[in-house]
Write a protein that binds this DNA or RNA. Structure first.
Lengths: 199, 199
DNA sequence: TTACGTACCGAACGCATGTTACGTACCTGG
DNA sequence: CCAGGTACGTAACATGCGTTCGGTACGTAA
């Protein structure tokens, strides 16, 4: 029997940490077995014990990205409606260092995803799920009178996601111009513009 | 003297075409001297005659991307104000095959740009210029009463760019869900929501 | 104890990459 | 005509990559 049955998951966690560090400052283009190995001061052969091929490592990196995104600390959800949408989008924006790293890695993964059909549909599904998560809150907002009665929640969800991720990209490239306050103000103005009150 | 002084630029144009083809379906991660060479049925040595190093080839690819973006066919600009902004943003969205390829290559370049400080500031500057191009039209729109008098043109330009590029990314990954009509409708609704009329 | 399977290292392999060197064809200037 | 420089192609080079292989240490099972 294996000498340390519980260590295996612990080791994989160590590898995950090293993969994350590499991705955060080199991106997927700089993700290599040796870079990960030297980042945790082990040999490449050790990596192969836990991830038999590089595809497996990349798959693990993407899983890790999705997992860390799902398990990131989130704001409490305030009252239903646009306030909830605001909290969800604030949780996406690169306001803290961790958020910045996570977003940076997501953007980096797009190069890979666009070149691989399987990864591309995975990313498309992820967007679909994100819109589906936001949509009920927009429906609630409409019911509360925070949106025009003619508003299309599905389309608005796509618009909100578009605004948010477009802001993410601009903020990643020019963090000095998009500090936390600016991002929050842009989000608030964007959400306010969705409100009813026009002819 | 060189045997064909005018051919040099013609040859570089051929190389550009091959580089473009490679980028369009492999991205920057798949841009290699041999992939370009085989894409135009020549040897790698021939490439080195025109681009002595790979950095030069990458720099040329980025220049090409910027040039093709700048020189792409554009809609006529209608009346000043939001209608002009609409035309500018429509010119960005991936509505045609060429637009899709161009946007795909831009997104692919972000992985490279985020890992290289020089390229990152270049991309940041590009965004600054794009916002600066849109901003005067937003000021005109405000003067025309198409925007609230309290509107901040610089911030609105950033918001419009964010919405547009966020939509670009979603559309690239899920073109079936974002056909031309959907993208245009989203843009129109987004611009309409900026209008005055609220308390 | 022995036997065995796991964990891991270090070195090597095969391959693709960027780059360089050498050779040849060709056009141009004298 | 010839001399020389340019435009390639061919072949080799060194490097870094993913992957494989033998070997050692160790803990468990019998």
């Amino acid at each position: 029997m294996p000498p340390a049955p519980g260590d295996r998951e612990a080791r994989r966690k160590d590898v995950s940490e090293a993969v994350w560090r590499v991705l955060a400052d080199k991106g997927f283009g700089g993700l290599t077995l040796r870079s990960v190995a030297t980042a945790m001061n082990v040999s490449t052969g050790m990596l192969m014990h836990y991830f038999p091929t590089k595809r497996a490592l990349i798959a693990h990196a993407l899983d890790l990205l999705e997992k860390r995104t799902a398990e990131r600390p989130r704001r409490e959800r305030p009252a239903e409606g646009l306030a909830s949408v605001r909290a969800m989008l604030l949780d996406i924006l690169p306001l803290t260092g961790d958020d910045t790293a996570r977003n940076r890695i997501w953007v980096s993964s797009w190069d890979l995803a666009l070149a691989d059909e399987g990864l591309a549909t995975g990313q498309a599904d992820r967007y679909t799920r994100l819109r589906a998560t936001i949509r009920p809150h927009l429906e609630a907002a409409r019911a509360l009178g925070e949106l025009p009665t003619t508003a299309d929640p599905e389309q608005l969800a796509a618009t909100a996601v578009a605004f948010t991720h477009g802001l993410v990209v601009q903020a990643l490239f020019d963090p000095g111009r998009f500090p936390e306050g600016v991002q929050a103000a842009m989000l608030d103005d964007f959400l306010a513009s969705l409100g009813p009150g026009r002819t």
